[in-house]
Amino acid sequence: MKVLIIPSWYPYPQKPTAGRFFLDQAIALSRNSNYEYEILNWGQNEYQLQIRHPFAAVSKIVNYLTAKTETRNITPNLKEIKIPHLTWTSRLFYGNIKALVKKLDSLSRPDIIHSYVTFPAGFLAFRLAEKWKIPYIISEHSGPFPFPEYVIRNKVSKKITLPLHNASAVLAVSRFLQAQILSSCSVQSIVIPNLVDTDFYQPADKEEGKCFSFFSLSILTYAKGVMDLVDAFALAVQKGLDADLYIGGDGYLRSKIKQKITKYHLEHRLHLLGYLTPQQALEQYQKCDCYILPSHIESFSLVLLEAMACGKPTLATDCGGPRDIVTPETGILIPPKKPFLMAEAMLKMKENINNYSPARIREICITNYSPPVICKKITAIYQNILQK
């Protein structure tokens, strides 16, 4: 069987984490099955032009003009096919995605297409499958679904509905996202969660004598709840919490967070770590006592799995996807946008930390989210579709 994987985002040298999950899952699929895989890289991020960044757009155009079509083997049965293509906002001529179909005439016909996120990848899969007369599936990850740019006068764009209604299967990463797809597009989907690399994310020996600490990793935006987290931590400290908070990631709220740190006199308690590589993030997961997720909405939450794989309990907002992940055995769920309740949960977590078993938390993660488990579910979908 030959599978063409089409991700909506893809890593490149200037942004190695952009779409990294899609590439990681493709690698995991290749290592956990004997099928032949190809992953399409058209420069999803690398050659995407944005009006609000005109100077960067000029640089991207220059890079595009010198880019070459090429292939490389990532694993013995996973090949990356790079076919450079300029794209832009989907509001203008479908973001130039329709033109990409003609560029892909050189590709050999696969047996099935697996696309990640309905637009642009799912839409491209729809067009290619129509041309090749083969089935395709869509794995949806977006949160919220659909993105506001695809809703016009309360009606979901055909860029979303056409691919979804014609797919042989639609996969959703959580029950929350499954419900959103059904309510907005009247499409049934199958819940298959994200996977986490449980070989990379592993527990480490606990440092003795260190202060209790919480860790959070995200883009510093309002939607990720980082301002709520800072307020909650300040409240908890006022109530007697003796702990440190480490926040990884960067974003436009960094300066506002610094102002709050000064306002609340948390200079020696709240630590902004900035951008973290996967290795640096792993070290923070291993060092912390609890991972905390303050988001307002998440279709899933891979960071919760990464923390669990390291044996850490999690404190998360009940903002969608986390509802499938966090249980009383692995952590605490609280309502989003409620700093007071988050502060209470932080105090409760520290008080009851010894009731959580790191070994059991990791076991639950491996049983439900490890690569062999998730890849088996995905490849079963391929088989069922091709046997019809």
Rank of each mutant, 00 (worst) to 15 (best):
L4R: 01
Y10H: 06
T17N: 11
A18H: 09
R20E: 13
R20P: 03
D24N: 15
D24K: 14
A26F: 01
N34S: 15
E38H: 10
N41A: 09
G43E: 07
N45V: 12
E46C: 02
L49W: 11
I51A: 14
R52G: 09
H53F: 12
P54L: 07
A57M: 09
I61M: 10
Y64V: 06
T71Y: 07
N73P: 06
I74G: 01
I74C: 03
I74P: 01
E80Q: 09
I81R: 05
P84W: 07
F93M: 15
V101I: 06
R109G: 06
P110E: 00
P110F: 03
F119H: 02
A129Y: 02
I134T: 04
I134M: 05
P135W: 01
Y136S: 04
E140H: 02
H141C: 09
S142V: 13
P144E: 01
F145L: 05
F147C: 09
F147K: 15
V151A: 12
V156E: 00
K158F: 15
K159S: 10
A167R: 00
A169F: 02
F176W: 11
Q178T: 07
Q178M: 10
A179T: 14
S183R: 11
S184C: 10
C185L: 06
S186H: 14
Q188T: 10
I190V: 14
I192Y: 02
L195A: 08
D197G: 06
E208Y: 11
E208R: 13
G209E: 09
K210L: 07
C211N: 12
F214S: 00
F214Y: 14
Y222G: 05
V226C: 08
V230C: 11
F233V: 07
A234M: 05
K239P: 05
D244Q: 15
Y246M: 14
G249A: 07
L253W: 04
R254T: 11
S255H: 12
Q259V: 07
H268K: 15
L270D: 04
H271G: 04
T277I: 12
Q279T: 15
Q280V: 11
Q280S: 13
K287I: 09
C288Q: 00
C290A: 13
Y291Q: 08
L293V: 05
L293C: 09
E298M: 09
S301D: 05
S301P: 05
L302R: 04
V303Q: 00
E306W: 05
M308F: 06
G311Y: 03
P313R: 15
L315V: 08
A316I: 04
A316G: 06
G321K: 02
I332E: 00
L333R: 05
K337L: 13
L341V: 08
A343E: 01
A343W: 03
M346Q: 03
M349L: 11
K350M: 13
E351N: 09
Y356N: 00
S357G: 04
E363T: 07
E363D: 14
E363G: 11
T367C: 14
P371Y: 03
C375G: 12
N384A: 14
